[in-house]
Design a binder for these strands. Structure first.
Lengths: 195, 195
DNA sequence: CACTTTCTTGACCGATCGTTCATGAACTGG
DNA sequence: CCAGTTCATGAACGATCGGTCAAGAAAGTG
């Protein structure tokens, strides 16, 4: 019926996501976005709306591609304790990849937006909630299997693990070397691993 | 000899620091800075140089006023373990204060600048290094006093505690309620507190 | 009181910000 | 092959960005 779009939405959204991820919302201009995404301004506004909406879409995409994959390892069948271990080791592994933006888009956005901009804040909060919930499920599973002392508070453990993941993302941005991150993860896992 | 300055440097720098703290570097415009600082553009540029230099001065001030005070509790004479406990409880306490910007300027800046801007990055790295070093001293002190198992790696523990502090700052920005932060700190302290 | 020096003030600079829009190209259903 | 619709293109918009500067005000020194 009409002229077809010459780009795939998810492909250019991926590029926008990575730009926001590495530079942050405010420091990423529309100019740099269109250059990196390989589309024109008109197409950007026609497809994604304004900058803020594009940013929300980028976070949503990050959620679907990056976060969900990580959380899937937490919910994978089998040992809950092993799942938690896998989660953190995957994070360290990801931090080593070349060409990958440092840290985590959710963590970065959390420290940037704060109170302003209600929409973004609630979306970030929802993602953190999903992470905590996944940790909670894994902890409960591990407790039922006798891997973690059932007397311990699973909610507190889940919150601790969520906070630890955020801390790790901050460290991954400033000192992404293996040694440091491995040290952090090793101790983090000792907390949950002890009987 | 000449007309004296009508404002105190540290006083207006404090206000700039809080603005950077709550809104981040990029989202803080010179316009808003001069309004909040209560001085004119000319005075700002005459006293602090350009925006980036002002930002570095704000971080330096944060270091001197906020971070150093926190680290002082770590180096205070007495039990190293108690010092570490104090550190985290102070952080939770600070997060409850009204009117105080959420989170931590160092953590926020760490997730915002990343690789770009060498000067700021190295300053943030230096501060994180100071934090880790202070934790390390407290851990070693606690080990000598028999409060922490001497067989454990003090460097790894210090890095873990540094990362935990960063994570707590992220959490304090998005969910600053006591219950959550208390849960996180409780588990964090269990790690180091066990025999 | 004059002179010198520094600070304050507000207008002003070009560049870049996010956003819009008119135009022509590309495609499909009739 | 034409009509109708969407897309691509790039110029252009006002607003705001970081930064500068000329001129007046305020102080101490001689």
């Amino acid at each position: 019926m009409a002229r077809p779009r010459e780009f795939e939405r998810d492909m250019v959204l991926d590029r926008a996501m990575k730009l926001f991820w590495s530079r942050g919302y405010e420091a990423t201009s529309i100019q740099r976005l269109v250059e990196r995404m390989g589309i024109q301004r008109g197409s950007l506004y026609g497809t994604f709306g304004d900058k803020r909406t594009l940013f929300l879409a980028a976070i949503e995409r990050y959620d679907r591609v990056m976060t969900s994959r990580l959380l899937a390892t937490l919910d994978a069948p089998g040992s809950g304790l092993a799942a938690i271990r896998r989660f953190f080791r995957l994070k360290v592994e990801a931090a080593q990849e070349r060409g990958r933006p440092r840290g985590c888009l959710v963590t970065n956005s959390a420290t940037q937006l704060g109170s302003r901009d209600r929409g973004t804040a609630s979306r970030i909060g929802a993602t953190l909630g999903r992470i905590e919930a996944a940790f909670h499920r894994a902890v409960v599973r591990a407790q039922k299997a006798g891997e973690i002392d059932p007397a311990r508070n699973p909610r507190a453990l889940a919150r601790f693990l969520t906070s630890s993941a955020q801390g790790l993302s901050v460290m991954a941005r400033t000192s992404p070397d293996r040694a440091t991150l491995d040290d952090v993860v090793k101790i983090t896992l000792e907390v949950v691993g002890r009987r």
